[in-house]
Amino acid sequence: MNSTPDIALFTAAFAAYVAAFAFFLVRSATRRPGWGLPALAATLAGFAAQTVALILRWRISGHPPLASMFEYASVMSWMAAGSLAFLVARTRRYEIGNYVSPLIIAMMAIASLVPKTLMEQLVPALQSYWLHIHVSMAAIAEGAFALSCGLAIAYLIKERRPDTPPEELERLDALNHRAISIGYPLFTLGALFAGAIWAYNAWGSFWSWDPKEVGSWIIWLFYTGYLHARYQRGWRGRRAAILAIVGFAMVILSFVGNLFLGGQHAYGTE
C-alpha cells in the first residue's frame, strides 16, 4: 500500500512549500512587497493540503498519523508551516519565510525519503492513547524548535547587514526565545514525561536508554542549557541564535538516528 491518496496531497503540499520559498526569495531579492502575499498564500495552500492529507491518512488507517517516521516528519513540518503562516500573517514580517520555509522543505524532503507504508494495524505497543499525547506533543515541540532555528538563521544573516535596525534583531531574538519557551515545556512534558509514563505501562520501565530516549535526553539537556545561559548568564542575540540552530540540528540527528541506530522507537523504518 505505497500510494494511498494522501501521498498525492503530501506531494502537492511539498510543491506548495517550495513555491512559497521561491516567492519569499523573489520578494527579498526584488524588494517588491507584492510577492509577500503569494508566498503566504502558497504556505497556507501547502498547509491546507497537508492538513487534508493527514486527515485522510488518519481516516484510512484508523489511527492518528503518528506511528511512523514519515508520519512524524510530516506532522512536524505541518506544525512548522502552520506556525510560519500564523507568524507571517500576524506580524507581516515576510522575511521570516526566507529562513523558516527551507527548514519546512528539508523536513518534507526527509519525510519523502523514508518509507510511506501505511500501517493499518498498529503493533500492540502503539495501541494506546499515549500515542496521541506523547507523539503529538513531541512533534509540536520539535516544530517549534524548527521555527526557532529559522528565526535564529534570520538573526545571524540580518546581524551581518549594517542596515538592519536593532529593534528588528531584538524582535527576532525575542521571537526565537518565545518559540523555544513554547517548545521546551511541550518537549519536557510530551516527549520525556508522557513517553516515560507510557514506557512504564508498556515496556515496564520509565527509561531504558533506548537510542531515541538518549537523543531526547541530549536535546533536553541542550535546551535546558540554552535557557539557563539566557536567563542566568544573559546570553542573547548571536550566541542564543547559534544555540538554537545547534539545538535543532540535534533534533534532526535524533530523528534520522532511528534509521541507523534502531532501538525500540524505530517504528515504520522498513
Binding site: 538518549v214 535526553w217 539537556l221 535546558t224 542549557g225 539557563h228
Partner: peptide
C-alpha cells in the same frame, strides 16, 4: 551548564 554539557557528551559516548 558545564555539568549539562558533560552529561550530554557522556550520553553521546554511551
Amino acid at each position: 551548564i558545564i555539568v549539562l554539557i558533560a552529561l550530554a557528551v557522556a550520553s553521546v559516548i554511551g
